[in-house]
Amino acid sequence: MRRSRNIVSAGLLALLLAGCTLLDEQTPGELAVRGARVQATVDGAMLELALDCRLSGPMSDALDRGIPLTLKVELKSPQAALLRRVELRYFPLSRRYLVRDPDSGRVLRSYAASAALLDGLRALHLPLGRDGSRLTGPELRVRIGLERSALPGPLRLPALFEPAWHLRSPEYAWTTDAG
């Protein structure tokens, strides 16, 4: 009788520890915009962002296995809205982490380590092209989040329901010099 109680107690303890581990794995990542501005360029405009980004465990694991993570950047003014995407990707053969524009295929930055990639997001320059000239007004807003629909098929369903796949910044607003 006493032995069966010990076995049951040990089993309950194991389940409790497994549950704590599972909860820890379900902690979402963190993404925040610390600063933003739109700068005029010869080719149109450039969005300069200062981001703080911490990926969850499953997101980091996916990235390290070569699964691209696409961030959707929503930029709004009172007159217009733009949508841009940024892809974070690891190429195992070259052992490089890249920040890419998936629409043009252009590599924006390249890093040797995932920590350097996330640190590099503190100064992200995203070309807006001629569309950037439509962004006028006294205030601009930006919001960034993981584009779950860009994940491979087997990850899309878990990304909808599991907190570890939730990554979205609060909206960041700033005033512009030209209003």
Rank of each mutant, 00 (worst) to 15 (best):
L13Y: 09
A14C: 12
L15K: 10
L17G: 09
L17V: 15
C20N: 02
C20K: 04
T21L: 11
L23R: 15
D24R: 13
D24P: 08
Q26F: 03
Q26I: 14
Q26R: 13
Q26G: 03
P28Y: 00
E30D: 14
L31C: 11
L31I: 12
L31K: 15
A32Q: 08
R34W: 01
A36C: 09
A36H: 11
R37E: 01
R37Y: 03
V38Q: 02
A40H: 14
T41A: 09
D43C: 11
G44D: 10
G44Q: 12
L49K: 06
L49I: 08
L49Q: 01
A50S: 05
A50K: 04
A50H: 01
L51V: 11
D52E: 10
C53I: 09
R54V: 13
R54I: 11
R54E: 14
S56R: 02
S56I: 01
S56P: 02
G57A: 07
M59Y: 12
D61W: 15
D61L: 14
A62Q: 02
L63N: 02
D64N: 13
D64L: 13
R65M: 10
R65N: 10
G66R: 11
G66T: 05
I67V: 12
I67F: 02
P68S: 14
L69H: 02
L69N: 10
T70R: 05
T70P: 00
L71I: 07
L71T: 05
K72T: 13
E74I: 09
E74W: 13
L75T: 10
K76F: 01
S77I: 09
S77Q: 02
P78M: 14
P78Q: 10
A80P: 05
A81N: 14
A81T: 11
L83W: 08
R84A: 13
R85M: 10
V86F: 09
E87R: 10
R89H: 00
Y90P: 01
F91Q: 05
P92H: 07
P92W: 08
S94E: 13
R95E: 12
V99H: 03
R100F: 01
R100Q: 06
D101H: 02
P102G: 03
P102Q: 06
P102S: 03
D103S: 11
S104Y: 00
S104K: 07
G105M: 00
G105W: 00
V107G: 01
L108G: 04
L108C: 00
L108P: 01
R109H: 08
R109S: 07
R109I: 08
R109F: 12
S110L: 06
Y111A: 08
A112E: 03
S114D: 10
A115W: 06
D119N: 12
L121E: 03
L121S: 01
L121M: 04
R122C: 04
A123D: 11
L126F: 08
L126D: 05
P127H: 03
G129R: 06
G129N: 14
R130T: 13
G132T: 03
S133T: 14
S133N: 15
S133L: 15
R134E: 09
R134V: 14
R134N: 03
P138I: 10
L140E: 04
L140P: 05
R143H: 05
R143Q: 12
I144M: 00
G145L: 09
L146K: 13
L146D: 10
L146C: 09
S149K: 09
S149P: 03
A150R: 10
A150N: 05
P152E: 13
G153I: 13
R156G: 02
R156P: 05
L157I: 15
